[in-house]
């Protein structure tokens, strides 16, 4: 477990170094580089038989895409709300996201793997469609809500899994990132931090008419994770699920009860 932790941290540092730009460094803080995404990508590429050097050439660009999308998420909703002193930062935030997107394409063009450029592009399209859907709150039911959130949180990882033919890891990733997003979202909400996706605050009406709370989506995702991780234990992923649930003080115990 220590080895994988170190490997993931090394990759994290390389993504951070790649995203560094002297004109952005001071003004645009880099969003968190999600080590869980690195973990999933690493595991998928490992299963598909890629060498460590190859893994790196794919993981870094994919993580840059995530940084691009996360950076654009920080752009103020309306420019009128931007204080004059913050205007430069606002403008550079837009450009920082564009820069990370450009970097992803640049790095993948070095690999010569053109189909993979499409794989990532498809993930980006899917995420942005889902984001607008969520943002406009055109969500009718808990199922649609969960599905849309899955697309936002794991469309790229899912596309990569399809490309690498690692179907089981795709399923795990979808539930994992859904669970993580909701649990973290709940925590943020308790601290008064909202996001365009804070619909997690409310109840959702299922087509049958009953209420279907976010809690229930979390439980279902945790249950599915438990089932699949029992079949094929990915030690570090299981550990992360336990950690997330534990930190949230979440009542779901079954996965947490499974041990490494």
């Amino acid at each position: 477990m220590q080895h994988i932790k170190e490997t993931i941290q090394t990759l994290h540092n390389k993504v951070q170094a790649q995203a560094d730009h002297p004109s952005l460094r001071q003004s645009v803080p880099l969003p968190d580089i999600d080590t869980d995404r690195i973990l999933f990508l690493y595991t998928m590429l490992h299963e598909a038989g890629y060498s460590d050097a190859e893994k790196e050439t794919y993981i870094i660009p994919v993580m840059l895409v995530q940084l691009a999308l996360d950076t654009h998420e920080r752009v103020q909703l309306n420019s009128i709300d931007v204080a004059p002193a913050q205007m430069e930062q606002h403008q550079l935030t837009v450009l920082a996201g564009d820069y990370y997107s450009g970097l992803y394409y640049r790095l993948l063009s070095f690999t010569g793997d053109i189909p993979f450029i499409r794989v990532v592009a498809e993930g980006i399209k899917d995420i942005n469609e889902a984001k607008i859907k969520m943002y406009e709150q055109t969500i009718g039911s808990a199922e649609v809500f969960a599905d849309t959130l899955i697309r936002i949180e794991s469309a790229i990882v899912g596309s990569v899994a399809d490309f690498l033919n690692t179907r089981m890891l795709k399923d795990i990733a979808q539930d994992f990132f859904l669970l993580k997003r909701l649990v973290v979202g709940e925590q943020l909400l308790e601290q008064g931090v909202t996001s365009p996706f804070h619909l997690a605050d409310g109840d959702f009406h299922t087509p049958s008419g009953g209420t279907y709370a976010v809690e229930r989506i979390v439980e279902n995702a945790a249950y599915r994770l438990e089932k699949v991780l029992r079949r094929k234990p990915y030690e570090f992923i299981l550990y992360r699920v336990q950690e997330i649930l534990h930190h949230a003080g979440h009542p779901v115990r079954r996965v947490a009860g499974e041990g490494s």
Binding site: A68, L69, H72, E73, V75, Q76, L77, N78, S79, V94, G97, D98, S101, Y105, I114, P115, I117, R118, V120, A121, E122, I124, K125, N128, E129, K131, I132, Y135, P196
Partner: peptide
């Protein structure tokens, strides 16, 4: 719409461009 829709639209169109270029 607003800045956020503009950001999503731009990212979406950029991805479409690379999809075709692929």
């Amino acid at each position: 719409w607003d800045n956020r829709v503009a950001m999503y639209t731009g990212d979406y169109i950029f991805a479409k461009a690379l999809d075709i270029m692929a």
